[in-house]
Amino acid sequence: MSVADPRVAVVTGGARGIGRQVVRWLAAEGFAVVVGYANDTDQAALAVKEIVEAGRRAIAVRADVADETAVAALFDRTEREYGGVDVVVHAAARTAAGTIADLDLSELDELHRVNIRGTFVVNQQAARHVRPGGAIVNFSSSDVGLAPEGQAAYVASKAAVEAITLILARELRGRDVTVNAVAPGPTATDLFFDGKDEQTIALLAARPPLQRLGTPEDIAEIVAFLAGPAARWVNGQVLRANGGIV
């Protein structure tokens, strides 16, 4: 990589929500960004258009994060386009609510596929490709610590993300690559608002001492920190970004 070449970031789930804001922040920090997405071609294209119009570099690549062949192709395309990979932000995930007694097991299987297998597959490729001085950032959830009723399947999947994060940080000993996770609390995204009434949203917004929902910008700034030079001594950690909910 020459002095003039930008650092390169892969962001899964980069077409919408927190992932989309992470794409914006990393591009603003000077990264060439690869927007990984599953289905939302139009939003991924808009994300790329926004970055390119701002004078930065970006492409969108479609990949199911649980499909190892597709994810390997995503990383290969990144290296062909930009010469390497410095940062991987794995923001792609899904959620499902339901009590242990009542949850449809097909929902559990899909959570396992996307949140656990998807994290493992993306981290496997990241471990093989990220250059020295790079960073891998996964997404957990503050619900892992809060253990709310009706969220057992989702929380279990995100607890697995935390385990993968810590173990990979140890397995990359000597590589000069950090591995951390961000665990947001309630954050104002389309996914968060989906299916919630105004009373539920108000109750969740009142829980943090800061008396508001998080924003995608709040979380993206933390990711940018973990991906940047100021966080080189932060490794194998889960940063609970939730405004103070305990």
Rank of each mutant, 00 (worst) to 15 (best):
R7M: 03
D109F: 01
V177Y: 05
V3Q: 02
F192T: 10
P229L: 06
V10C: 05
V89Y: 01
V61C: 01
T12I: 08
V65W: 09
Y37I: 03
V161T: 12
V3W: 00
Y37R: 08
I201C: 01
R16T: 14
N138I: 04
N235E: 11
L210A: 15
G134E: 08
E217N: 04
Y37M: 07
V89Q: 00
A63Y: 08
A231F: 06
T12L: 06
R170V: 00
T119K: 05
P186S: 04
V48K: 00
V8S: 05
P184I: 07
L210H: 13
L166D: 12
V246M: 12
F139W: 07
A163G: 13
N235W: 06
H129A: 15
V234G: 00
Y82A: 01
F120P: 02
I219K: 00
V161R: 11
N115G: 05
L213Y: 11
Q125M: 12
F75Q: 08
T215H: 07
A135M: 05
N123Y: 14
D194E: 10
T178E: 00
L172Q: 11
E198N: 03
A231H: 13
D5W: 08
G195W: 03
P148D: 06
E53K: 14
A183K: 08
D190I: 01
G134W: 07
A63I: 03
A9Y: 06
P229Y: 09
V87E: 03
G134K: 12
S157E: 05
G13L: 02
T165E: 06
R16D: 14
Q151T: 13
A63K: 09
V122P: 12
D67R: 11
P184M: 07
S142H: 08
A152Y: 06
Q237F: 08
L168T: 15
A93I: 09
I18T: 09
D40T: 02
A159W: 12
G55T: 03
T78S: 11
A127I: 09
G19Y: 03
A159Q: 11
R24G: 02
A163E: 07
A135E: 05
A92T: 07
L26E: 11
A45M: 02
A15D: 14
G14C: 04
I222V: 14
A241M: 11
R16S: 15
V35N: 02
T165W: 05
R62H: 02
V65R: 10
D5C: 05
F192V: 08
G133F: 02
T95N: 10
A156I: 01
R175I: 02
A135D: 05
L108S: 11
G84V: 10
